[in-house]
Amino acid sequence: MVSAAVRTVLGDVAPADLGVCDAHDHLFLRSPRLPGQELDSVASAAAELDAFREAGGQSLVQWTPHGMGRHARELPALARTAGVRVVAATGLHQAVHYPPEVLADLRARGLAEVFVRELTHGIGDSGVRAGLIKVAGGFHGLDAHARWTMAAAAEAHRATGAPIAVHLELGTGALDVLDLLCGALDVPPAKVVLGHLNRSPDLTVHRDAAATGAYLAFDGPSRAHHPTDWRMPDAVAALADAGHGDQLLLGGDTTTAAARSVHGGPGLPHLLRRVRPRLERAAGRDVVARILGANPARAFAVEWPA
């Protein structure tokens, strides 16, 4: 009998071994949309992971997809030294993050095949296998690029069982994404993680999305997203009260160098030092313990093919 496992950069682990998990963050990230704010320093990533561990963090899911500076070769040593489990991603972000020639090459190679290879064989020649597929929607809609990447993600999911994590632009388009992934493309809702819902605090949409069975990620402490932080506790509490406490995830989504704690920003520790106690006051300790522990353990667990 095959047991479900979370695929980390140091190998597959039992879901319960994730412990306290930041379910959406970035140790490394590079995009032409963030000039001068690249997360590309290995030393800063190491210091940030140490600070996260000291705050009580035990695992981190990096949502950085293909072609955005994942530094896959560096991740095993960082995870081992810090004593923090790290999950890497395959997938593709919005078209604006890539040169046209990169997208043309991926079309020629077959996008789903790229995803599957990174999930099963490794990212490039790093030997690091991805544990999830990250894709992205648009602002209140899905363009042709989003539909292409989501179709490829669905195909890769069917081949591997890997969960699909979705960047929702400013938190919008959740129901359109679910209509495509879980409707037309037949991905089980429990294998979909919707990110950035705190950026569009529409509780009706939140409840409708949760009713499908998908996971909902709230991930706003990054400096660039702080205006939505104060709404997060109410949204989490409302969803928990509606019976969806087992579908909620929490992440920091550190996307700029200035947001790292080692550079004076909130960084990874902020999630546990400041966000967690505020959520506990709003939703209760039991709910928050599930959000940081049992929920990501289920969301990222896969019965991987041999």
Rank of each mutant, 00 (worst) to 15 (best):
A159R: 15
S59E: 01
D234C: 00
D286C: 07
T254L: 15
L180G: 07
A224C: 05
L272S: 11
E74T: 07
A151R: 15
S200I: 00
D50Y: 08
P76F: 02
V42P: 04
L132S: 05
P35M: 09
V192Q: 10
V128L: 07
H270V: 07
A301N: 01
L103A: 08
L103G: 09
A299W: 10
A77S: 14
H145Q: 06
R30A: 12
R276I: 00
D234I: 02
A43C: 01
G137L: 08
L92W: 14
E169H: 14
Q94W: 11
D234H: 12
R276G: 12
P163S: 03
D208A: 13
G173T: 07
H167A: 06
S59Y: 01
R298A: 15
A259G: 15
L175W: 06
L248P: 06
V302I: 04
V275M: 15
G67F: 08
S261L: 08
F139R: 13
E54D: 13
V193P: 06
A144Q: 13
F218P: 02
W230L: 11
E280V: 15
L181F: 04
V86F: 03
C21M: 01
S59M: 04
A217H: 05
H24K: 00
E155Q: 13
E74C: 11
D17R: 13
G220M: 10
R278N: 14
V96T: 11
T212G: 05
A4Y: 04
A104D: 14
A299Y: 06
N295Q: 09
L103N: 07
E155L: 08
P266W: 15
D22G: 03
A211Y: 05
L248M: 07
R73F: 13
K134A: 08
L170M: 12
R199Y: 04
V9Y: 05
V128R: 03
L216P: 01
L216D: 01
A210N: 02
H263T: 10
L248H: 07
A144M: 01
V205C: 04
A242T: 04
V114W: 09
G173R: 09
A306D: 14
P189G: 05
A165D: 04
L250F: 12
G220I: 04
D143I: 10
T254P: 03
G243W: 08
W148Y: 10
H97K: 01
L168D: 00
Q58Y: 04
V6H: 07
Y98L: 04
D25M: 00
W304H: 09
L239R: 05
D17H: 07
E169T: 14
R274S: 15
A294I: 03
H226Q: 12
A242E: 09
H97F: 13
L106A: 14
A156I: 06
E303A: 15
G264N: 09
F218T: 00
A235R: 11
L249F: 01
G284K: 06
A47D: 12
L181D: 00
A257S: 14
D286E: 15
F52P: 01
D22S: 03
A306W: 10
